[in-house]
Write a protein that binds this DNA or RNA. Structure first.
Ligand code: SF4
Ligand code: SF4
Lengths: 157, 157
DNA sequence: TTGATTACAGACTAAAATGGTCTGCGATAA
DNA sequence: TTATCGCAGACCATTTTAGTCTGTAATCAA
């Protein structure tokens, strides 16, 4: 729950690698998959989705592969996420699929949850694959959250 | 992916309801389940978990039920989430379960993703069930994110 | 004392999402 | 012309999620 899928993980690894190569450099699925021990067939599918979404450019030929289609700064984690897994929503009622939930008629928590969701999406959008390889400036300031897991911190004061 | 489970949804609905009743008021599973059309058995389990986690107090008796054990302001969405579903992590490598992922040895995106995760957890912690029924102050400022779904906005400038 | 009402507990099944495999086709440069 | 690459989709296994079923224990009131 609330977890990124393995496919997204793979996409981010691949894109991060491509972002670190020189401008317009070409990488192919086999090499990336081997480097990160990713099943090649899965990575292939992921790359195809990224290609369809216009984030990367395919070169279908021997010695071909993929290259970034946009500057690494303009490829956000959210874009990657949407490209690979489709629309994102933390609650069933607001993820694009309008299969109305049973509780919707009586639900009085939708609005705040959607705002929470928008905040999360904003963060995902604010983080680019360029920043994955660096210290992500946009995330500075909240780095002490490791204590949040089992024993959530008390922030209210 | 990145979605709250139905059980969490149920928990938030129930807690929001209880937060709106008078201090120390008691609600029982049957009534809440009926009000929101939730399968009573599921809600029962959810409430038991909330009780075990010390967020609510059970009253096992006829005319019994549950009451909040903490002020509504001190029950964060993150606490509810952890109580119902266990530790939270957006990536497999950092959700408490230390089943190491195949890519971990070569992975160079863990640190930024964990910071991203901490930001998300911080938001979840900052939102209390009290604020679910109101305009959540902590979420002000990012309310225009509805355009983020299919066509992510360009924030970089 | 009895019984209705409530929470507690856990096995069990069904459906959906996820992760991975397999097979074949299409494009292109050497 | 052929080896190397991407393209496409069916297919299966595993895990997670959602829901069901059955039975026990505590408490209060009649
Ligand atoms: S219960 Fe409310 S917030 Fe949750 S999915 Fe249904 S309408 Fe959305
Ligand atoms: S690939 Fe990296 S970030 Fe993803 S689960 Fe593995 S170690 Fe964590």
């Amino acid at each position: 729950m609330l977890k990124l899928t393995k496919k997204v993980d793979y996409a981010l690894l691949a894109l991060n690698l491509m972002a670190k190569t020189e401008e317009g450099g070409i990488s192919n699925v086999r090499d990336i998959a081997a480097l990160y021990s990713i099943p090649p067939e899965i990575l292939a599918k992921v790359m195809q989705k990224l290609s369809k979404s216009g984030l990367i450019q395919s070169h279908n030929a021997p010695k071909g592969g993929y290259s970034l289609k946009l500057p690494a700064e303009e490829i956000s984690v959210l874009k990657v996420l949407v490209a690979v897994e489709g629309p994102v929503g933390i609650v069933s009622c607001s993820d694009g699929t309008d299969k109305s939930c049973q509780q919707r008629g009586q639900c009085d928590i939708r609005s705040p949850l959607e705002k929470l969701q928008n905040n999360i999406l904003w963060f995902l959008e604010a983080l680019s694959i360029r920043e994955l390889g660096q210290e992500p400036a946009v995330l500075k300031g909240v780095t002490d959250g490791s204590s949040l897991f089992g024993q959530p911190l008390h922030h209210k004061g």
